[in-house]
Every structure is written in C-alpha cells, then in structure tokens.
Amino acid sequence: MDTAAQDAAAPEQPPSPCGDILVKIRGLSFRRGSQVILDRVDMDIRRGAVTAVMGPSGTGKTTLLKLITGQLLPDAGSIEIDGELVHTLGTSALFRLRRRMGMLFQSGALLTDLNVFDNVAYPLREHTDLSPSMLRKLVLLKLEAVGLRGARDLMPGELSGGMARRVALARAIALDPDMILYDEPFTGQDPISKGMLVTLIRQLNDAAGLTSVLVSHDVDETARIADHIYVISHGEVIAQGTPEEIAADRSAWVRQFMDGIPDGPVHFHYSAPPLVDDLLPRGVV
C-alpha cells in the first residue's frame, strides 16, 4: 500500500483507459459545524466493479454517498462522475446525472401511500412516456428480478424489512442506471434476507454491467461480493485493496474492525476518569 510499491507496479499493468474510473474522488473534505466528518478522502470507483466502503458506524459513510449523489456539497475537494464535477452542477444537470444512478436507502424509502407496483413504476412514470402496457411489463420484469412479482399489490406497510429493501432495489434499477449505490443494505436483516441481497447485488452488477458502490459495516457479506474495499475511520481512508489484501492487512485498527475485537485502537470504554475516582465519594479517605 505504500507509494513505492505502487510506483514499481505501475509499469507492469497496461495503462488503464481514462474511462475505466467512473467516480474519481480527490481530497474530499466535509464537516458539520466544527466536527470533521470526512478529511481529504481520495477514492476511485471502477466501472463494472463492486466497490465497498467499510468502517464503523458514524464514520461518514452515508455522508460520502450523499456527497457522491450531490445531496450534500463538499467543503473541499472534488467528485468527478464520468467527467462531470458533481458539486458544480446545476439542478437540472444534477437531475440528469441522477437518472443514471440508483440508490438503495437504509430504510428502503418507499413511498408509503403507493403500493409496490406503483412504487417501482414511479420513476418510469416520472421520466418516460411509456404506454401503460409497456410500463406494466417493465415493472413486472423488475419485480421478477428481485423475486417479488407476486407482491405487486401489497402496500409498503405490509412488507417485511427484507422485502421492502428488495422492492426499493427494483425501483432503483427501474430506469436501468449505470451505477447503483447501496446504503447499509444488510443492516437489520435476517440471515436469509442477507443471503438474498448479497446474491442480488452481485447478480445485478454482473448481469446488467452496473457499477456498484456498497456502504456497509457487515464484514462477511461485504467481503463476499466486493471487488475492492476501502476501510475508513474518523473520516480518513486507512486501508484499501481487494478483500484478500484487507484480510491480510496487519494494522491493529483494520484487524480490530475486520475481526470484531471489542478493545483495541477503538476503545471499549468511552473516555472517562478512572473508575476508582468516580466511585469513591469525594472527601472520604
């Protein structure tokens, strides 16, 4: 991971074409008030690959996704998607770019007053002039892809968490995007749903030639499907590489996160004065 090694390796690889990188992030910083969320982050997201961003809760992973989609503006640095600088785009150009992206939210973010079919049909109705019969076929195909064609008449409130996420996934791919972003897709899912989502994400990525960005702190699931992993902590990238490289990484921090060790660089105890001082009543002794 040191620069000397990269420099040495560079001549051996064929120079990658400029278009190989879909999202290029350079020196990205973001702070909320005085709190630094992201600090000079560099990332490259390759076309056709599943790139995972991992790290403990509250390290700015979701913020990173919001920056990529232009819902937040960076304090410094740049995000370039397919040659366009996201943070400099006007509303209409940004909306045009977003039609090429799908995003799966943690909660699914289905519109609660529409049923499953209408939720998936929503972006199509919004951005295309398809005939009703064409629209119906497309929606049913997308629902079939996530295995929920039979659930088309259910309301979001009647779905289990895993089903809601799959419906949201069908909606995210309704417009056949180039890129799809997953925000914590495995959180709060039972093992079966997790397995389904893992398979779906990989299948969609490979079958449709998508580029996937996956934000997660579920180590096993992410390691199974990611091509490239960035590990971030306190707003900085502390490790990156293939799942194997990350698994072999020896730094104490990466090991604590990947192996789930309770105490390490991230302390089990929130910082506090020594226990004895807290427990002994003042003035006694």
Binding site: T69, R98, R99, G102, F105, L110, L111, P123, H127, A172
Partner: peptide
Amino acid sequence: LMKATEQLSGLEMMAVD
C-alpha cells in the same frame, strides 16, 4: 415522517424534486 424515512431523499435520488 417522509423526511425521517428518507422518502424525500429517495425522490431526490429518482431525480424528482
């Protein structure tokens, strides 16, 4: 609630204001 359940962000991501 639509904001809390990310429905508004979801719309934005579908390029709907």
